[in-house]
Design a protein around this nucleic acid. Structure first.
Lengths: 188, 188
DNA sequence: TAGCCTAGAGAACGATCGTTCTCCGCGCCG
DNA sequence: CGGCGCGGAGAACGATCGTTCTCTAGGCTA
């Protein structure tokens, strides 16, 4: 097993355990057991738990935004793409291991104590907002910034609401709201 | 010091410490030190940390909704009251110890492991939704349910966005969105 | 004044945390 | 074939966790 595969197995284990149970509730030894990578190599690749947590968040950010972008790009209508974001959210909410936003959860748990984690979370939210701004602009809204911020708020609210209620209905409500907001802002 | 005062001091200490640092990052001994209540009495009043956490959440729920309702009730226009909710959020976001939604944070940290905490969080969100539904109905919306759910999503999204970005601007965006949604739903 | 109940201070307990160290076996270079 | 170094298994370490126990000082009743 080379370093790249060790990294992958460690990050896979870290992601599923941290996301399901929270960061503080999962010890390093549990990640060793789930990954099959020895503790010695774990600390060779990630010299502390905080480093591992940040790596987990940054890899999840890339994957999450990649999956969203791929789903949205499959929609032929640029005007509809901002709404398709909420269709993707609804599918996500229905998955059995859905547990809310990994970044919001990590920020609530560690944002005070770990600047590295806080920055990774802020970076994720900033990237999502950038992406939404591009979608809204391409949908024909003359000033996409404010509407994109509204969509970002709707998305975050839908994620947390769906996580707590356990049902994906919030995605539909958010999509309906987004439709009204885009219409009012003059989407083509 | 009687039992009622001990409870108050313990819950005050628990609330400020749990809210600021997260639940798992704060030990029982730190709550003893901050409250001035001995460990023995602490465990007399709250026989486990989980019980204390649930009591913290339920008292905060009552206070939080009480403060919101008092602020909103001071607005003379029933039609404007759903929007005033977001004014109150904006003031809250500006407070120096604002750290996001205590219930979302607790759910992310403990929702998987503690059914009592998960239920307290669900109860809070359900009560907020009930309250918003009443406001939207009184504002003249014929079918207040869907709009109230949209406002709840906007509020949760604004809270998390404000917590992560550190600026209260999300409240304004959410308020503008709420205005559009209420207008589209036929508020009088 | 004598006895008793309460409460506080803090040690103690077993568990678990993040992290490091020891020991052993296996594969590569001479 | 022999020595060497890397990697894995897991013990060990000091710290801290939630929780309980011990010991003592003090106020109330008789």
């Amino acid at each position: 097993m080379d370093a790249a595969e060790a990294d992958g197995r460690l990050l896979d284990a870290a992601e599923s355990l941290f996301y399901e149970h929270g960061v503080q509730a999962v010890g390093m030894d549990r990640i060793r057991a789930a990954s099959g990578v020895s503790l010695k190599r774990l600390y060779q690749r990630f010299p502390s738990k905080e480093v591992l947590v940040e790596a987990y968040l940054r890899r999840r950010d890339a994957r999450w935004r990649g999956a969203l972008a791929a789903y949205v790009a499959a929609c032929p209508s640029a005007a509809a793409r901002p709404l398709v974001v909420f269709d993707w959210l609804e599918e996500w909410f229905g998955e059995p291991d859905f547990r809310g936003c990994a970044f919001i959860n990590a920020y609530g748990e560690l944002g005070t104590g770990s600047p590295a984690v806080a920055e990774a979370v802020r970076d994720h939210k900033a990237e999502v907002l950038r992406y939404l701004t591009g979608l809204v602009r391409a949908a024909g809204v003359p000033e996409p910034g404010p509407v994109a911020e509204q969509l970002a708020v709707l998305a975050d609210g839908a994620i947390t609401t769906a996580a707590i209620t356990g049902v994906p209905a919030a995605a539909r409500r958010a999509r309906e709201a987004a439709e009204v907001l885009l219409g009012a802002a003059g989407a083509a």
